[in-house]
Design a protein around this nucleic acid. Structure first.
Lengths: 196, 196
DNA sequence: AAACTTTACGAACGGTCGTGCTATCTTCGG
DNA sequence: CCGAAGATAGCACGACCGTTCGTAAAGTTT
């Protein structure tokens, strides 16, 4: 019986599909996702993939959720393990730049891409993206507040959080668009200047 | 005879189509552009619109070119008219934030959106977007170099240019995704701190 | 006025999209 | 060993996609 906490068998296929879906979406966007393409690439039937999610929108939402899990495991969770204040703030920035630079998603930061894709469209997908993005922004903000209230830094925490988030995203954008690693170098220098 | 420098008369329709195309693309992306949709909305025939450009890719490239003209007229050209150094640098930032905040394109900055859309895909559209984005980044960089060499500021001009560009784009991204104007306020505070 | 080019249209094409239905296959409790 | 239930496949649908072709007006040139 589903819903009793045990894994349904179909969860294996679901995971397989979602793993591919996040990679595809990071390059071609959540609109670039297509049931037929996923099915062909994974040698499944289109209707089988469809049945796993029930609608394209549900597939998109599940893809966001899957990407969020990966993002958290690379950036948020390890940073939460280091002491609050400046050390944690540094860890967040460095983990995020690594996450982008190592291309955990082949198209660069998943949420940067789908955020730009859905920023001006209404609907559940927009809301999910905005919520994920806002949650990470809040995480940075809290770390900045800690660093300031612990006396590690002297700055307006709201502005500082905005700056750090901005620098990371710009590095991702420039590096993916133009290739090379210069953008990460610039971002690290700017972040370093802000966190000293 | 075409190509002799005079305007073909079909340019009126072409302009009409492109004006709509940049608006559509700023919200739904260059892939979200469709010949049929443009034709329906403008009460033209699909084949007529198609014939104006010859292929969808050419339509996308022409749309980028049209957006570039609008962007320049709002941001680059007026800033070029103010004295080089710090005044021009301030003008660039303020013009850009205004351009984003006033929604010259309904989906926010056109090049932010299509940059994120095509950053990881190869092809002529990617190259055109990268070139446009890089050209504006170069414009900021030059203004930063001027400001430093004129003694208006003391900073690494490369890093400063990266920071300013990053802050603007982040303000656009956050404001379009979440609504409200708080992101612009934060960006203006951060930019003001950098330019004093 | 005749010849020709430009501009736009309408119909049709092969293809892919998301979405239903129906059937087959696997799995597992009784 | 059987039957129920879930997972997957096969097939068909209507809609929309970019593209092609033939053609009818409108404008220009001779």
């Amino acid at each position: 019986m589903p819903g009793d906490g045990r894994l349904a068998r179909g969860d294996a296929t679901r995971r397989l599909v979602l793993r591919r879906a996040v990679d595809v979406a990071s390059v071609d966007g959540l609109d670039g996702l297509s049931l037929g393409r996923l099915a062909t690439e994974l040698e499944l039937s289109k209707s089988g993939v469809f049945a796993l999610f029930g609608s394209k929108e549900e597939l998109q939402l599940a893809t966001i959720e899957a990407a969020l899990t990966i993002f958290r495991s690379h950036v948020v969770t390890p940073a939460s393990a280091v002491p609050p204040g400046l050390p944690r703030l540094r860890a967040i920035c460095e983990n995020w730049l690594d996450y982008s630079e190592r291309r955990v998603f082949p198209g660069g930061c998943f949420f940067f891409n789908v955020g730009a894709e859905f920023d001006a469209r209404p609907g559940r997908v927009h809301d999910a993206v905005a919520s994920a993005s806002g949650s990470f922004a809040g995480f940075i903000r809290e770390a900045c507040r800690d660093a300031v209230s612990l006396g590690h830094l002297d700055a307006d925490p709201e502005v500082l959080a905005f700056e750090l988030h901005a620098l990371g995203r710009a590095a991702n954008a420039d590096a993916v668009l133009n290739g090379g690693t210069q953008a990460y170098t610039l971002a690290r220098r700017a972040i370093g200047a802000r966190l000293s």
